[in-house]
Write a protein that binds this DNA or RNA. Structure first.
Lengths: 215, 215
DNA sequence: GACAGGCTGCCTACTAGAAGGTAGGTATGG
DNA sequence: CCATACCTACCTTCTAGTAGGCAGCCTGTC
C-alpha cells in the first residue's frame, strides 16, 4: 500500500484532529485552510459542503476502526488480550495526545445539533463497536476467562461506556493517567471474577493497582 | 422558596438547555433571544460576554449539584441508596429529556476549544463530584455494604466515568434505557461484591458524626 | 508528433447571513 | 436623579458556500 498523502487526505486528517479537539461546530473551513496550506475554496472542491466532509471523515474513521478490530481478531487470539489491546490503543493515543478522543464519541455528545447524515454514521459506529465487544466478551466467557454477570451485550455496553467516560475524565482533568486508572479497574473487574469461581488453569493474578492520580 | 423567574434566570436556563444539546459553540445569543423573547443586545446587558454567561451558568450548575449532594447526605443515610438516588436522578432527566446530559460533562468533551475561565469551572466540577463519590464509596465500604477492590478514589473515578459514558451511549443510541442498563450493572457490581463477602452489619441507621465529608 | 478538448486542482473574488459585541436611546420605578 | 431593563441600529469578523478563471496533465484524433 503506497501511502502517498493527497490533499484530500490532508484535509480529512486535519478536520479529524479539529473535531477531536472541539466537535462539529468547533472548527471551520478557514481553520483547515490555514493548517493544510490551501485556500478555503479549494476545500469545497474536494468536499462541497461541511456535511460531506464530516461524513466522509467518519466513514473513513469507521473503516479504520473496523480494520483495527479485524486485525485484533487475526493477530490476537485471546479475548482478554484483545480487550487489553483495544484499551491499550486508546491509552497510547491519549498519552501522546495524538488523537485523545474517539471522533464518534465526541460527535455523539452533540448529536442533537448534528446534521442528519452525520448522526447516522455516529450511531452506526456505536453499534458496530458494541457488537464487536459483545462477541469478544462472549468468547471470553465461553473460554472461561471471563465470567459475565449479565448478558454479553449488556456487559459490552457497560465496557464501551466506561472507556468513553474514561476518555472524558482524562480530558477534564488534563491527565492521561486517569484513563489507565479507570480502564485498569474495568479490565481487572472482568478478569478477577473468573479467577474467583472458575477452574481455569492459568491464573496469572496480578494486583498491582492502586496508583490513583492525585491532583 | 419563592422562585420568581427573572429574565436573567430565563437566559441562564435557556443557555443551559442549548449547551446540553450542542455544547459551547452549538448556540448563539440569537438563539437565546429567540427563545426567551428578548433582543440579542439585551442579553449583553445581563451577561456582557458569552464567557460571562457560560461561567455564571456553570457556577450556578455547580451550586445546584453541591446542594443536591448535600441534600442526599441529609435525607439519605445509606451510601448505597445515595448512589442509587444520584443515578436515579440522571435516569429521570434522560428519560423525560428535560436535561439529558451533565452540562460539565458535555463541556469537558470540548475542553481544548473552551475559554480559560470555563475550563476552570468544568474541571472543578469533576473534582468535587469525584470527591463526593469517593466519600460515599468510602462510607459504604466502612459500613460493609460495599467492598471496594481498589482505593475509594479510584473506584469513584470509575463510577463517574461509567455514568458519563452511559449518558453518552443513551444519546448516541437515542435510547434512554441504555443508561439504566449500564448504570444498573455498575450498581449491581458494587453491591454484589459485598453480598459475596458477607461481614456486614445490617443496621443502617448510623448518622451520629459523619455527616460532613471526610476526605 | 501536434493539438484540441476536457478534467483536475487550485486560485481570487465574492456573497449572504450569522457570530459576538457596542453605542446610544427610552421607559419605568425607587 | 439615577439605576435597571430593555430597545433600535450598527459594527466587525467569521461562516459556509459560489462563480469563474487558470495552469497542468491526460487522452483522442488527425
Amino acid at each position: 500500500m503506497g501511502n502517498i498523502s493527497t490533499t484530500s487526505d490532508d484535509i480529512l486528517a486535519c478536520a479529524r484532529a479539529l473535531i477531536v479537539a472541539g466537535g462539529y461546530n468547533g472548527f471551520s473551513y478557514a481553520d483547515i485552510a490555514n493548517v493544510v496550506g490551501i485556500r478555503k475554496a479549494s476545500i469545497h472542491h474536494h468536499f462541497p459542503s461541511k456535511v460531506d466532509l464530516v461524513r466522509t471523515l467518519i466513514a473513513r474513521y469507521r473503516e479504520e476502526a473496523k480494520a483495527g478490530m479485524a486485525r485484533l481478531e487475526l493477530q490476537v487470539s485471546d479475548p482478554v488480550e484483545q480487550l487489553r489491546s483495544y484499551v491499550g490503543y486508546w491509552e497510547a493515543c491519549i498519552a501522546d495526545a495524538s488523537a485523545p478522543f474517539c471522533v464518534c464519541a465526541l460527535l455523539a455528545s452533540q448529536l442533537p445539533v448534528l446534521p442528519e447524515g452525520v448522526v447516522v454514521e455516529v450511531r452506526a459506529h456505536f453499534r458496530s463497536l458494541s457488537e464487536w465487544l459483545t462477541s469478544v466478551l462472549e468468547r471470553g466467557a465461553q473460554h472461561g476467562q471471563l465470567q459475565l454477570t449479565n448478558s454479553p451485550h449488556a456487559e459490552a455496553e457497560a465496557f464501551m461506556a466506561t472507556v468513553h467516560g474514561a476518555m472524558l475524565s482524562a480530558r477534564a482533568y488534563g491527565d492521561p493517567k486517569i484513563f489507565a486508572v479507570v480502564t485498569g479497574q474495568l479490565m481487572e473487574g472482568l478478569i478477577s471474577r473468573s479467577l474467583r469461581d472458575d477452574s481455569h488453569g492459568k491464573d496469572d493474578r496480578r494486583r498491582d493497582q492502586d496508583e490513583t492520580t492525585s491532583n
